[in-house]
């Protein structure tokens, strides 16, 4: 009896439901467009998912710690724009380390700002990071102006041309290269998963997300832990923004704005609770996969791409409602 119940619970758990939804999505897409079932789709999906995945992991860490960060797109924009601006004004060296170093340094500065506002001054995280966002974005354009850098410095261009594998479509002869930068989200996921599970740092983040007061009584340093979450988020988001510039050949002051919606959607769909303490790397990966699938392959279902925003909203809504229903179901099962 108990085994049966456990099996049923497993089959109707949130991750499994995500997998069903994705399977159905792919099935319909494949039936409508047989071309969907080709390595090319997979490679495109991977390429499109690189940034979403990295950003989502950053956001996940903050959400688990009981906060939220909506400032990373703006911070990312500063981090991708400033190094290019410096380089184009002859103030930088042409080195991958320089670009990524400057980007991450910028991330660090804004991460500290977020950390001070949220953990030290105890401001509501949403409003505080929204303020950081406008400070970053407004300040950037005010000081450095707005233009688009579309040509990469040679060092980044070299990075861009390194591919893991290249798939050539036998029918059309199109080439689909898979960039080496795909390894960044892969390693990031592995490392963050290990940290969250096997270090006191990770468990501390879960602990403060679950109950701040209990964490304080137990002897966790709540302020430091929150600081780490926000700094990690900003620094990694900045590095991700630099990857974006490399892959997209573009660096503008507004490229990433609005991205926070999709990222938060991916986290929530993947099982993070905005109240903190819940969420996992595995779930977030599923959430990102679903969102990326919906974003990039809507037309495969015969829905015009102009409905993409709406579709993402719908996925987020259903994800939120689903997790609420799941929580209620577990509550109904009674206390033990």
């Amino acid at each position: 009896m108990e085994k049966k119940q456990k099996l049923l619970l497993g089959l109707t758990s949130t991750p499994m439901i995500l997998i069903y939804v994705m399977a159905v999505f792919c099935l319909i897409a494949a039936l409508r467009q047989p071309a969907f079932l080709s390595p090319a789709t997979l490679i495109n999906l991977c390429r499109a998912g690189i940034f979403t995945m990295c950003f989502a992991i950053c956001e996940m860490v903050v959400i688990i710690s009981g906060g939220i960060d909506v400032s990373f797109p703006a911070i990312g924009c500063v981090a991708m724009y400033v190094p290019m601006w410096l380089y184009n004004h002859d103030m930088g060296v042409d080195s991958v380390f320089f670009f990524f170093g400057v980007a991450m340094l910028i991330g660090l500065v804004f991460g500290i700002l977020n950390g001070v506002l949220v953990s030290f001054l105890k401001l509501p995280p949403l409003i505080a990071t929204l303020a950081t966002s406008s400070v970053a974005s407004g300040g950037l354009i005010m000081l450095l102006g707005t233009r688009e850098y579309t040509s990469l410095p040679p060092s980044l261009d070299a990075l861009y041309s390194v591919n893991l594998i290249t798939f050539t479509d036998p029918a059309t002869g199109f080439k689909y290269p898979l960039t080496i930068l795909i390894l960044v989200p892969v390693f990031l996921c592995i490392i963050v998963a290990l940290i969250m599970k096997y270090t006191m740092l990770g468990r501390g983040l879960y602990a403060i997300g679950g109950d701040k007061n209990a964490a304080r009584v137990a002897g966790f340093n709540v302020i430091v832990l929150q600081f780490i979450a926000y700094i990690f988020c900003s620094v990694m988001a900045s590095a991700t923004a630099m990857i974006y510039t490399t892959l997209m050949h573009s660096s503008t002051t507004t490229a990433l704005m609005g991205e926070e919606m999709i990222i938060i959607a991916a986290c929530v769909v993947g099982g993070c609770r905005l109240t903190g303490g819940h969420g996992s790397v595995g779930g977030t990966i599923l959430g990102v996969l679903l969102i990326t699938l919906v974003r990039n392959n809507l037309n495969m279902l015969g829905i015009p791409t102009s409905w993409q925003t709406f579709a993402v909203g719908l996925v987020l809504l259903l994800g939120a409602v689903l997790s609420s229903i799941q929580a209620r179901r577990i509550e109904k099962m009674g206390k033990i």
Partner: peptide, 25 residues
Amino acid sequence: FHIPAMLVTLCGLQLYTGLAYGITG
């Protein structure tokens, strides 16, 4: 559903913006 207002209205923003975008194309 007892979902935080922040999440629901964030989602609403996406939905209503999406509707406006979808209608106008």
